[in-house]
Design a protein around this nucleic acid. Structure first.
Length: 191
DNA sequence: CGTGTTTGACCAGCGC
DNA sequence: GCGCTGGTCAAACACG
């Protein structure tokens, strides 16, 4: 889960909208992890989505969680009604960002494939898929029900390719502006 | 003309 | 079994 460890390294893309860099607003990732569901709403099961998200194995300690850990079967259904038991897609990572823009460029190319309005939220939920071929990573972006200034982004699956900006980074390390070097080499915790 | 978005329909799971 | 709800598909559309 590279996003959680060092999201700064994904910031090598400078093609954001210029002044409005959503990531630069807040960088405390620990607040974005909605690991434990602390809403104990009794009587109303309105937080069914956040509970299911929290009760999943979204942040397990190892980055290689697809093989060793407690994988529950993640059923991905095909159009034909066939259920596949895909273990590769079983990581789920959700975080919460204070941003006006809900589209955050994290270095990957996403294609929107759906939009739904959830029950207890006035805000719709957007569904994205990684546009690289063979990469079935999905992403779901919605605004917080309570604070509409927060954006909840849920990644599901792992990319089977590098980020395009990382490729660019590996090819041309000299053209990095002098602001990136301190951020890019902060963590090295991906074995 | 290729690529991405929009948007309604469709489908599966779940609760009643 | 039925209806609600969340997730996905895909045709139409927009944009470079």
């Amino acid at each position: 889960m590279d996003y959680l460890e060092n999201p700064n390294s994904n910031l090598c893309n400078t093609n954001l909208t210029g002044n409005s860099d959503p990531w630069s607003l807040d960088f405390e990732l620990s607040e974005y992890l909605m690991l434990q569901d602390h809403h104990h709403h009794h009587g109303v099961d309105q937080d069914s989505t956040s509970q299911s998200m929290a009760s999943s194995e979204q942040v397990m300690g190892g980055s290689s969680g697809s093989t060793g850990a407690t994988l529950r079967n993640n059923n991905i259904r095909c159009k034909d009604g066939v259920k596949k038991n895909k273990m590769e897609a079983s990581h789920r990572v959700a975080f919460r960002t204070k941003s006006e823009l809900e589209v955050m460029d994290d270095g990957f190319k996403w294609r929107k494939y759906g939009k739904k309005s959830v029950k207890n939220s006035p805000n719709p939920r957007n569904y994205y898929k990684c546009s690289s071929g063979g990469c079935n990573v999905k992403k779901r972006v919605e605004r917080d029900r309570d604070d509409s200034s927060y954006v909840i982004t849920t990644y599901e699956g792992t990319h089977n390719h590098e980020s395009p900006c990382m490729v660019y980074y590996n090819q041309m390390p000299y053209t990095i502006p002098n602001g990136w070097t301190s951020q890019a080499s902060s963590h090295s915790s991906t074995p």
